[in-house]
């Protein structure tokens, strides 16, 4: 019953359809991109910076590689980094936020200080420093983005848990002799999920953008093509000033579309999980 309600929201609204379509395509391409790419993504040729043609749908790069193929192959890194980093961030943020809000006292004070520290430190410079210190690789990228972006989620979750902790249904469960684990699982977490999800959605977006930014600055995984490294190469080779829009716009547009799709699904999810936002049928 719950599942059909969720499906209905996804299939009956344009936001749901758009979000699902973009994400399905992105996930499909990130899995099979290497197989459907018409050219070897890094194969150089003599057709340097050619505009779109029948041979090269999105033109070619400064080294004569096919932009369309790079775009398809690069999807994997953006999707992987975006989702994996957001999951790390959501898990960290909700664990810290719940522990901090639920247990209070010294636990709260220490975790809160940690949270403040991460909130105050500018994230991008921190990411750059961390990514520079560690050898750039996909795992490092995911870890760096995940570990630097959980503080906002932690703060939101903590605030929600502070109010939930005082509700009488939590008190009632305590009066029944329920343990902390049970109360967190059945009363705190379900009432915090929409917030966790909503902020995780934003973090997916931030993570995709951060990956692009780090790659753009040359801190991405050098062995893999991503939308960010495509932009980096484009700018390094002076493609924008050469008028090679086909090299700049596709990766930028892909980043934007994916971020938009993820956000729309996030809002729909919130509507679904919060019964009050749901329309009575």
């Amino acid at each position: 019953m719950r599942e059909s309600g969720a499906l209905k929201l996804l299939t009956d609204t344009w936001r749901g359809r758009f979000g699902v379509a973009v994400i399905l395509v992105a996930v499909f391409v990130s899995i099979f991109g290497t197989l459907i790419a018409p050219y070897e993504p890094e194969a150089s040729s003599l057709d340097v910076l050619q505009p779109p043609s029948l041979d090269h749908w999105l033109g070619t790069t400064e080294s004569g590689a096919d932009v369309f193929s790079q775009l398809l192959v690069g999807t994997r890194v953006s999707v992987l980094v975006g989702f994996a980093a957001a999951i790390i961030s959501a898990v960290l943020g909700s664990m810290v936020g719940i522990a901090s809000g639920y247990f209070g006292g010294w636990t709260d004070r220490i975790l809160d200080a940690l949270e403040n520290w991460f909130l105050v430190i500018p994230t991008l410079p921190l990411m750059i420093v961390l990514a520079r210190l560690l050898d750039p690789s996909l795992i490092v990228l995911i870890a760096v983005i995940g570990f630097t972006s959980w503080a906002g989620t932690g703060r939101i979750v903590r605030a929600q848990v502070l109010t939930l902790r005082e509700r009488s249904f939590v008190e009632r469960a305590r009066a029944l002799g329920a343990g902390d684990g049970y109360i967190i699982r059945t009363h705190i977490l379900p009432n915090t999920l929409p917030l966790i999800f909503a902020s995780t959605v934003l973090i997916i977006a931030v993570a995709i953008l951060s990956e692009a930014a780090l790659a753009f600055l040359g801190l991405g995984d050098p062995t893999r093509i991503s939308w960010g490294t495509m932009l980096q190469n484009a700018f390094d080779s002076g493609a924008p000033s050469a008028g090679a829009w086909w090299y700049v716009i596709p990766p930028g547009l892909c980043i934007t579309l994916l971020v938009l799709a993820v956000s729309l699904l996030g809002f729909l999810y919130e509507e679904y999980i919060n019964p009050r936002l749901r329309r009575e049928s």
């Binding site: 509700r167 249904f169 008190e171 009632r172 029944l176 002799g177 009363h187 379900p190 019964p275």
Partner: peptide
């Protein structure tokens, strides 16, 4: 105590978990 004594609270809007 928790088996034998139960409690009900003042605010009927806070006393039930909205997700249950």
């Amino acid at each position: 105590l928790r088996r034998r004594i139960q409690m009900i609270f003042q605010d009927p809007y806070q006393t039930l978990n909205p997700r249950q």
